[in-house]
Deep mutational scan, measured.
Amino acid sequence: LTDEELVTMSVRELNQHLRGLSKEEIIQLKQRRRTLKNRGY
């Protein structure tokens, strides 16, 4: 997933992508998404 996709994707879509990932990967992705959102994309 690109940063842009992460930010513009709805939470529902995101959760579908996260299905099948490990807990660590999910946590990393969610942190990255929060960081991007805070940057004001």
Rank of each mutant, 00 (worst) to 15 (best):
R33I: 13
G40I: 15
Q31F: 08
T2K: 04
Y41L: 14
L29F: 04
E4T: 08
L18S: 04
I26E: 04
E25S: 07
M9W: 03
D3F: 03
I27C: 12
K37Q: 10
R32I: 02
M9H: 03
N15Q: 11
L14D: 00
E25N: 06
M9F: 03
E13I: 05
I27Y: 12
Y41V: 13
L36G: 02
S10Q: 03
K37R: 12
M9N: 02
V11M: 12
T35Y: 15
T35M: 15
G20F: 09
E13A: 08
R32C: 03
K23S: 08
H17R: 14
R39Y: 09
H17Q: 05
R12V: 08
L1S: 01
E25I: 11
G40L: 15
E13M: 07
Q31I: 13
Y41Q: 13
G20E: 05
L14K: 01
Q16K: 14
I26K: 14
G20Y: 08
T2H: 03
I26R: 15
G40H: 13
T2S: 11
R39I: 14
L6H: 00
Q16H: 10
T8Q: 13
T2P: 03
M9K: 03
L1W: 06
Y41E: 12
E5D: 09
R33C: 10
L18K: 02
L21Q: 04
E4R: 10
V7D: 04
L14P: 00
R32D: 00
S22I: 03
N38D: 11
R12W: 11
R19M: 10
T35P: 01
L36W: 01
R32W: 03
R39F: 10
K23L: 11
E25Q: 12
K37F: 09
K23N: 08
G40N: 09
G20P: 03
S10H: 04
R19C: 05
E5H: 06
L21F: 07
L6T: 00
Q31H: 10
L21E: 01
R32Y: 04
E13D: 07
G40P: 07
T35W: 15
S10D: 05
Q16A: 13
L36A: 04
E24V: 09
R39K: 14
L14Q: 01
L21V: 04
G20C: 06
Q28T: 10
D3G: 01
Q31K: 13
E4L: 14
Y41R: 08
S22Y: 02
N15H: 11
K23V: 10
H17C: 11
R34V: 06
E5A: 08
T8M: 11
E24I: 11
R33V: 07
T2V: 02
N15I: 14
S22D: 06
I27R: 13
L29N: 01
Q31T: 10
R32K: 05
E13N: 04
Y41T: 13
T8L: 09
E13Q: 11
V11A: 10
L18Y: 09
L21I: 04
Q28R: 15
L18C: 10
R39P: 09
N38E: 14
E24G: 09
K30M: 15
L14A: 00
M9D: 01
K37S: 04
H17Y: 15
H17W: 13
I26P: 00
L6A: 00
Q31C: 08
L29V: 13
Q28W: 13
R19V: 10
R33Y: 15
E5W: 05
H17S: 05
G40V: 11
L1M: 06
G20Q: 06
L29W: 04
V11E: 12
R39E: 14
R33G: 00
L36E: 01
L21S: 04
Y41M: 12
R33F: 15
R39W: 09
G40Y: 14
S22W: 01
Q31R: 12
S22H: 04
N38W: 07
I27T: 10
R32M: 02
K23T: 10
S22G: 07
E25V: 12
E5L: 08
M9T: 02
N38L: 11
G20A: 06
E4K: 10
L1F: 09
R34I: 08
L14E: 01
L14W: 11
G40M: 14
R19H: 07
N15C: 15
L6Q: 00
I26L: 04
K23I: 11
R32A: 01
V7M: 14
N38C: 15
T2D: 04
L1N: 01
E24Q: 12
N15T: 10
R34H: 08
M9R: 02
L1V: 06
I27F: 12
K30T: 07
G40T: 07
Q28S: 11
L14F: 15
L14R: 00
K30E: 04
R39N: 14
E5N: 05
L1T: 02
V7R: 08
V11T: 10
E4Q: 10
R19S: 08
T8R: 15
V11K: 14
I26M: 07
L36R: 02
S10A: 04
K30W: 15
T35A: 15
H17F: 15
R39M: 15
H17L: 14
L21H: 06
E24L: 10
L29P: 00
L21T: 02
Q31A: 13
I27H: 11
N38Y: 09
L1I: 10
E5G: 03
R12Q: 12
N38H: 09
L1G: 01
T2Y: 02
E13V: 06
L1Q: 01
V7H: 04
T35V: 14
I27E: 11
E24D: 11
E25F: 06
R39S: 13
K37W: 05
H17N: 05
T2G: 04
T8S: 14
L1E: 01
E4S: 08
K30A: 05
T35F: 15
K37C: 15
N15E: 11
K37M: 14
K23E: 09
L21M: 12
Q16P: 03
E13F: 03
